[in-house]
Amino acid sequence: MDEILKVENVSFDYSDAQVLKNVSFTLHKGDFLGIIGANGAGKSTLIKLILKILPLDKGRITLFGTDIQKFRDNHKIGYVSQKASSFNSQFPATVSEVVMANLYSKRRYPFLGYTHSDYEKLERVLETVGMLEFKDKLIGNLSGGQQQRVFIARALISEPELLLMDEPTVGVDAMQYAQIMDIISKLNDEGMTIVMTNHDTPELIRVSSKLLIFCSHGNGEFLNRADLTVDEVNAIYAGKRGHHHA
């Protein structure tokens, strides 16, 4: 199977506190990795290291077989963060403008206008997230959940093969939450490799095919979800948390 992401012995410190310690795992095409752990356990840090938002000091990360320092195929990676909660709602941009912007990574001559095929891609990804009817609406006028679906569409328009999601459902109401999780599961069923952190641990355990469980000491435990029952996963997670509290 195609190797998508390989993390080898990655460690990371924030000045005096070590958040990641010798983290290693490999993801193949179609894997759904759920990263769980307490706040500050290093879940977001790992995603930021993969995206080069934070500098990688120790260890090695390869994307599609290429070291991240040399990796330039930005369009192959989609990223969705907790945008809805930090977003300037008065920014005068439409859903279409926000989503189309991310075509940048695929365009050879970005100073030219958008093509017919670009608009087709726009309609396709908005359809995927159920936001096509809102394409001409100002993004600031949408609800948090709708905005988050737009940001998922933005990540999808560059036709990524790996989707990284850092708490994409923060500040989203229950109905929108179910819809967003449904969209993500469908994408995974269609072959998209997904890495996701989520405050709703039971749901993440349910949908993931692989799990990375962090304890307070930063060394994540990588598990194949298929080998374990939900109770066994919960027992391991509780053990880690118990260790954390001890």
Partner: peptide, 15 residues
């Protein structure tokens, strides 16, 4: 537009 709207996403897209 991209940098003004979301600088981090723009950088990740290669801007």
């Amino acid at each position: 537009f991209f940098v003004t709207f979301d600088e981090e996403a723009a950088r990740l897209a290669g801007v």
